[in-house]
């Protein structure tokens, strides 16, 4: 069979296959999640509290075991071979917490080495911290004196330096001031352009629409919808989200749903 270059779909860097998580108390946090994130793409998981976004990320990081299905990082089952799988992923949490008695530089050095990168010089650390917008004067300050935005920047610098092909972001812009949020989104865009596959959970509909290549809407552990950025062009994502959350899409003829239906 002959393929043209445009026909070849790159293998997904992050993939959830029928990923299901039922907790011991019987709560189904994630129900049969299927998603793929290719290199150079951003997938935003939108959803309210308890929608299953963080559960999905925790499954990719092997913090919890799936009840069914699998989370794959670069084709490696993250729950079967976690040590191997985690070599290919970097993680930035909602509220990056580093060691408060360490300076930014010491934290970066520790976590980057933990990520398996031992060859960086101080200059390279400084360059990464500059890139994320941290002031030089803060490099040797202890983290306990950092604001949330500064900690978030340090966290993303660590992810950049780990240089993993996949990045997991759990509510990365939550609690950031608008300027810091914009800077953060700019950085995510840069990382995408460098070929990273990014899976991001967020409440932030506008930023999700602005930066993502795919948006998935999760409600009660179910991926209600998945749309590409092309699908969403000209669509009021906020209304769409609200309608999904309210369950309208299943019962009513929504103008937004109609707009999203393939012609």
């Amino acid at each position: 069979m002959e393929h043209t270059e445009s026909n070849i779909t790159p293998a997904p860097m992050l993939e959830a296959r029928n990923l299901t998580k039922v907790y011991e108390d019987g709560i189904k946090a994630l129900d049969n999640l299927n998603l793929k994130v290719e290199p150079g793409k951003i997938f935003a998981m939108l959803g309210g509290n308890g929608a299953g976004k963080t559960t999905a990320i925790n499954l990719f990081l092997d913090f919890i075991q799936p009840t069914e299905g699998m989370a794959l990082i670069n084709g490696i089952n993250a729950n079967k071979e976690p040590l191997e799988a985690k070599k290919h992923v970097a993680f930035v949490s909602e509220n990056v917490q580093l060691y408060p008695n360490f300076t930014a530089m010491q934290n970066v050095d520790f976590f980057v080495r933990l990520g398996g990168k031992t060859h960086y010089s101080r200059e390279q650390y400084e360059a990464a911290l500059h890139r994320v917008g941290l002031q030089s004067s803060a490099f040797d300050k202890k983290l306990k004196d950092f604001s949330k935005g500064m900690r978030q920047k340090t966290g993303i610098a660590i992810a950049i330096l780990k240089d993993a092909p996949a990045i997991l972001l759990d509510e990365p812009t939550s609690g950031l001031d608008p300027k810091a949020g914009i800077e953060f989104i700019r950085l995510i865009g840069e990382l995408r352009n460098e070929g990273k596959a990014i899976l991001m959970s967020t409440h932030d509909i506008f930023r999700a629409k602005e930066i993502s290549d795919h948006v998935g809407i999760l409600n009660n552990g179910i991926l209600m919808a998945e749309h590409s950025s092309d699908d969403l062009r000209g669509v009021d994502l906020e209304n769409l989200y609200v309608e999904y959350m309210a369950g309208y899409m299943e019962h009513t003829e929504s103008p937004i749903a109609n707009a999203l239906k393939p012609s």
């Binding site: 092997d62 913090f63 949490s93 990056v96 917490q97 933990l114 660590i158």
Partner: peptide, 14 residues
């Protein structure tokens, strides 16, 4: 509780 445990174990450490 401080969140560093998650960050540590997002790496390939046993």
């Amino acid at each position: 509780t401080s969140g560093t445990l998650k960050l540590c174990f997002s790496n390939s450490i046993s």
